[in-house]
C-alpha cells in the first residue's frame, strides 16, 4: 500500500501557520495535515470516476430494486 508521493511547494509563512496548527490538532507532520485538508476539500466536490456505461448499469439495478 505504498503511496506515490509528489512534492509541492508552499510559502514559508503558510508552512509556519500549518506547523502551529498541527500542534493543536495532533497531526504528527505538516505533510499529513496538508494531505488531510486537501482530501477534505476534494470530497466536497465528490466527483467519482466511474465509467458511464457501468454507472448506467448500476442505475438500472437500483431502479429495479426500488432504490430509485
Amino acid at each position: 500500500m505504498d503511496k506515490d508521493n509528489k512534492t509541492i511547494t508552499i510559502s514559508k509563512h503558510l508552512y509556519e501557520l500549518l506547523e502551529r496548527k498541527i500542534q493543536q490538532d495532533k497531526f504528527d507532520s505538516v505533510d499529513n495535515y496538508v494531505e488531510h485538508l486537501l482530501l477534505q476539500l476534494l470530497q466536497v466536490e465528490g466527483s467519482e470516476d466511474l465509467d458511464p456505461e457501468e454507472e448506467e448499469k448500476i442505475k438500472q439495478r437500483l431502479e429495479k430494486l426500488g432504490y430509485l
Binding site: 466536497v44 465528490g46 467519482e48 466511474l50 454507472e55 448500476i58 442505475k59 439495478r61 437500483l62 430494486l65 426500488g66 432504490y67 430509485l68
Partner: peptide, 20 residues
C-alpha cells in the same frame, strides 16, 4: 440480496439522489 449494495452502488445512488 435486494438489500445488499456495494459501495460503488451506494455512491451512484447518493449521486442520483443528489445527496451531498
Amino acid at each position: 440480496p435486494e438489500n445488499r449494495l456495494t459501495p460503488k452502488e451506494t455512491r451512484v445512488l447518493f449521486k442520483v439522489k443528489g445527496w451531498k
